[in-house]
Design a protein around this nucleic acid. Sequence first.
DNA 1: TTCTAATCGAGACGGTACGTCCGGTCTTACG
DNA 2: CGTAAGACCGGACGTACCGTCTCGATTAGAA
Lengths: 226, 226, 226, 226
Amino acid sequence: MAPTPDGPTASAAPRSARPRAPQGTHRGRGRRPAGEVRADILRAAGALLLDEGMAAFTIERVARAAGASKTTIYKWWPSKGALALDGYMHAVEETLAFPDSGDIVADLTAQLGAFATLLTRTRAGRVLAELIGQAQTDPDLAAAYQALYSAGRRRLAGEVLLRARQRGQLRADVDPRVVIDQLWGACYHRLLVPDEPITEEFTAALVDNLVRGLLSGPGAGRRSAR
Amino acid sequence: MAPTPDGPTASAAPRSARPRAPQGTHRGRGRRPAGEVRADILRAAGALLLDEGMAAFTIERVARAAGASKTTIYKWWPSKGALALDGYMHAVEETLAFPDSGDIVADLTAQLGAFATLLTRTRAGRVLAELIGQAQTDPDLAAAYQALYSAGRRRLAGEVLLRARQRGQLRADVDPRVVIDQLWGACYHRLLVPDEPITEEFTAALVDNLVRGLLSGPGAGRRSAR
Amino acid sequence: MAPTPDGPTASAAPRSARPRAPQGTHRGRGRRPAGEVRADILRAAGALLLDEGMAAFTIERVARAAGASKTTIYKWWPSKGALALDGYMHAVEETLAFPDSGDIVADLTAQLGAFATLLTRTRAGRVLAELIGQAQTDPDLAAAYQALYSAGRRRLAGEVLLRARQRGQLRADVDPRVVIDQLWGACYHRLLVPDEPITEEFTAALVDNLVRGLLSGPGAGRRSAR
Amino acid sequence: MAPTPDGPTASAAPRSARPRAPQGTHRGRGRRPAGEVRADILRAAGALLLDEGMAAFTIERVARAAGASKTTIYKWWPSKGALALDGYMHAVEETLAFPDSGDIVADLTAQLGAFATLLTRTRAGRVLAELIGQAQTDPDLAAAYQALYSAGRRRLAGEVLLRARQRGQLRADVDPRVVIDQLWGACYHRLLVPDEPITEEFTAALVDNLVRGLLSGPGAGRRSAR
DNA sequence: TTCTAATCGAGACGGTACGTCCGGTCTTACG
DNA sequence: CGTAAGACCGGACGTACCGTCTCGATTAGAA
């Protein structure tokens, strides 16, 4: 019978060659060690994300670049956003420390300044923005982003603020969760809706506005909490 | 010879002989009144966006719903994001007033409370989030969003703050642009990264934190700017 | 046509127990058995071509009718013409034999008469004309038509003529390739530029003109080559 | 609301500028002398056809190149094929004479040789093939081609053959219409299905085969009818 | 050691949307 | 007031990607 049982029987010019020859890249179709494949995928995902951004980030391109199959990716990541986030977090070994020197104003100013630098001087800013953007229509990414990234960052910042409050540096009725949105959230806002730039002047003013209060009159001008 | 003396020498069949009958149910494929078509498209775009969100918002669906052709849409809008924004702005009669009663604290609290309600109680919140998300990878939408929406909102808020400063209610060295990110930007942050909810308590705390300052000690507790 | 080595997938006999769900429930979007899909496509292509002609033959309609996706079609056929030719060749059980009884005149007359009947009494004539027409602006179809159809037909006819020449029935300096154009080529001409009809009188005259020669005078009137 | 009643009322970036200024090519929309426009169209059609072939020949491109509107073209030509034929016939002042020296064999050989040169050495061959191809699915073009081109050519050739028959050079029972298909039709066949080349050897053999007949034996070898 | 049997990668598949192009019809505004 | 310009709808084009699913190759466990 037919040597090629599923071949096009009279196709004039089938575009993909029939013989299915091993095309060089792979040794075969068998199974590779799982971790190795996963590492390749994450590497490829991170590189693609940083190099070309979220618009060019597709599962097919990651699979091709990693020499893996889509099946494998779908087996481990629920959506392209989740994969992108995972790839990003493996690509950037982001260790933006939260200093806790005891001077809450200095600590906040330093941390926000470093954060502003990260957002504007590296590719992380653009990628973060695109990930958050993608998360708006990708529930898997939204969940992953919250679980793996934002919740942890909020917790860290919250603890620093809480300790400052416990030290008596901040008013007792201050909710650290609100403060976080007024400092880092303000930065994310400028990242996502770039009407205004993210500068160190900006981050310094964020802290200054909050700690001193906006109002004019007596009490204005106090600067240090020490 | 021919009734059209300068007629086509090669016309095999006179035009009148060709049946060219309206071949079906359509009233015609020709041109419709110009503005009418664009109004239909915007109407359909807005409805689709509010009903099913950005994920379901495709140019093909808008065209189908509007009874228009994709060609027409591409002629007038550079990207699906730009169309979505345009449709959104025609759908919602956005009347979020910026009150200016003279009491800046009361005004800010009121406006931010209304804004929080808009974001959480109507579909506008989700749509806005998806538009901003989409804008991260759609330069056309980003430009349009800034030109048509965010820049205007910032200007309105900035003027209110500036007037308060001129009245002496705010310190003279306060940059209204920073304050905006610490108030409305904080709300957008919670909208886009929903770790924490957007409540009226939250918006009230935003104002309170800023006007009173975070620090404990003398001067804390001043509330009214009047 | 039977000995096509990999015939099962495209043969007229369908797999009777194919569980294909009636369209609409789509049991799944994944892969269907490879050859089955191509068989469906060829079947649909042939039917559409014979029913409505080349003008209505579009890849989208074939895909729709076959329950296949355009991607699949583009994967296997380089142009719509190539697909049309393939579909045609699977639809018509082309059994236009080339008899070789030893009497070249009788054989040619019989074959050309049958050919004329095929061209005028069946839809094959119109379809062939449209395929050749399409091939004028579709290099893929032109190549496929030559490789799969015309070259083979020419070879068959050439062999018959060659054998007749070897038997001494035809002059030794006759080029069979030229004769083919003067017999079948003349028919194709009338098919493609229908100034005159293709009748059995016409095909008989084709043979008669050639074998007897056009000239009047001595020698005219010889009829049999035996 | 909008000052531009049919404009996109809030389109972010309408692609075509609003003022719709005359963009250079035309002086206005008013009427130009009819014949002038027609001449421009024919000129553009012929140039486009010869330069880029039937595949690139569209009514829109002709309209653009001629500085005319589609309406004008549709007013005078029933289909793009008819326009193409008309443009072609105005572009090539094809005057392939039919000599009638009295020696029918010499005349035919000369005419077919010149015809072969036309088909192979100029662009006319390719264009003719594409026109005939297009005519297979364009009834308007088919009718026009027959009326304006092929019928006339057949008539000319037929008259030459008829006179030769009346002079007694051809057998009295020869049908000139059949002979035409066996000479020129054979050439068209090779033009449209290019399995074999169109050479002067080929055209010479066409005549030779017919006038001498194919059969071997007595009488073979007579060559001249004079 | 050979022969299954399980398992995983490769990629074909249906579906959807993309952005472009063209045919043929119709409204509008120029001249 | 007629006519040319071109906006309009429909629909096909060929491509990309998604998420599902079949198939074949590889390899491990059973014989």
